[in-house]
Amino acid sequence: MALRLGDTVPNFTQASSKGEINFYDWAGDSWVVLFSHPKDYTPVCTTELGAVARLKSEFEKRNVKPLALSVDDVESHQGWIKDIEETQNVSLNYPILADPDRKVSDLYDMIHPNSLDNLTIRSVFIIDPSKKLRLTFTYPASTGRNFDELLRVIDSLQLTDKYSVATPANWQDGQDCVIVPSIQDPQELQEKFPKGYNAVKPYLRLTPQPNK
């Protein structure tokens, strides 16, 4: 069954390029970006894994752990990592899950037979510290992912969790946010949004980003 937003994601124990991982224990109190790759030694995947390694400090600022997955085994991963580090000029600083038995791929519905037969598609799962699924993306095999967009989404999700705001179209960090419709009490509005707000419409109220 496909995972839906708000579902508790399934736990698993699986080998990886950095040793065996029990997902819940490894994730701990962090957010997780779990992203899958069709197979090792593929060109687009190589660039993606390098891009994520370069964003390590950005993920750490947000309390996020990246976790890649490919259907090949650990030995194959170790060889591929050498190529990634050589061609992308990075040190691969996060694990790649090995999934030759397709256990994790099946748990997370990463195999779409009409697209890639028995290989994983380019899936992305953003998972919060409560192990709840907060976002999914599905890309075709030919299209590399935009990891700056994933950081933007994580910023938005974390703002919503802490400050009762949503983010409008094309929002970037530092721009005005939207007050969630559930907050209507004037005193609560004043307490939560001391910077004030602009009521464009009764249901569209813009406020400066609370943590800036």
Rank of each mutant, 00 (worst) to 15 (best):
T87N: 14
L69N: 03
V52W: 11
E60D: 13
L34E: 00
F193D: 11
V74D: 01
L206N: 03
A166M: 13
P129M: 03
H112T: 11
H37Y: 00
M1S: 15
L55Q: 10
A98H: 05
R102A: 06
F59Q: 06
L119N: 04
R152S: 10
P202C: 04
Q187S: 09
K212L: 15
I179E: 10
C45N: 07
P95I: 12
Y24C: 05
T120P: 01
K162S: 14
K201Y: 08
I127M: 13
R134Q: 15
W31S: 08
R54H: 10
V104N: 08
P129S: 10
D29I: 06
V71E: 07
D128R: 11
F147V: 01
T46S: 15
T47D: 04
T13H: 11
I127R: 05
D106A: 06
V32M: 07
P43I: 03
P140K: 12
L49P: 02
T13A: 13
V52R: 09
N89L: 11
L69R: 00
Y108F: 11
W171K: 11
S123C: 02
G144T: 05
T42N: 09
L133I: 00
L5T: 11
E48F: 02
I154N: 04
L206F: 14
E188P: 02
N93S: 15
N114H: 05
G19K: 13
T136M: 07
I121R: 00
H77G: 08
A141W: 00
Q172S: 14
N22I: 09
S16G: 06
L3Y: 00
N146A: 02
W26S: 05
P194G: 03
Q187I: 13
I127Q: 10
N198K: 14
E85I: 06
